[in-house]
């Protein structure tokens, strides 16, 4: 509860109103997208719907990486682009993951004639 009170104090200090120049806003946005993605992954029946949740989670982590890269202080000899490069690799991995996952969805549809995860429960047809 203490932590929540602290968060409310931060909002009171006008930090929330500074919009794009406040790390807090980006982190909260990332957290909300992450939570929505988790919700979709847990509750969706459709395999493609679960995949959409995964994509939301990957985007949330990307926002976090870039936000921390921008608000990082400068140290001698540090270029400050690590976060952006990480997000670039996340996007690459997401593309590869989406291709394989959708191929799996099509393979499941070919054998079971459905992509509802509740009804795909036997190992052999």
């Amino acid at each position: 509860m203490d932590a929540f009170a602290h968060g409310l104090v931060l909002a009171d200090q006008g930090l929330l109103s500074s919009g794009p120049n406040n790390l807090f806003n980006y982190l909260i946005l990332g957290g909300v997208l992450f939570a929505l993605g988790i919700f979709a992954m847990v509750s969706r029946k459709n395999a493609v719907g679960i995949l959409l949740g995964v994509e939301l989670i990957l985007n949330a982590s990307g926002i976090n990486f870039v936000a921390f890269a921008r608000f990082n202080g400068h140290q001698a000899g540090y270029h400050g682009f690590d976060g952006q490069v990480f997000t670039l690799f996340i996007i690459v991995l997401a593309a590869a993951e989406a291709a394989v996952a959708l191929a799996l969805v099509l393979a499941v549809f070919q054998t079971h004639r459905t992509i509802e995860m509740d009804r795909v429960d036997e190992l052999r047809m």
């Binding site: 807090f24 982190l27 909300v32 992450f34 939570a35 988790i38 919700f39 509750s43």
Partner: peptide, 18 residues
């Protein structure tokens, strides 16, 4: 179940941010 898991994750994230 989804709402519970997502709510716990969101609360933990906000605590971590603070």
């Amino acid at each position: 179940g989804g709402a519970l898991v997502a709510g716990v994750v969101l609360a933990a994230t906000i605590m971590l941010i603070n």
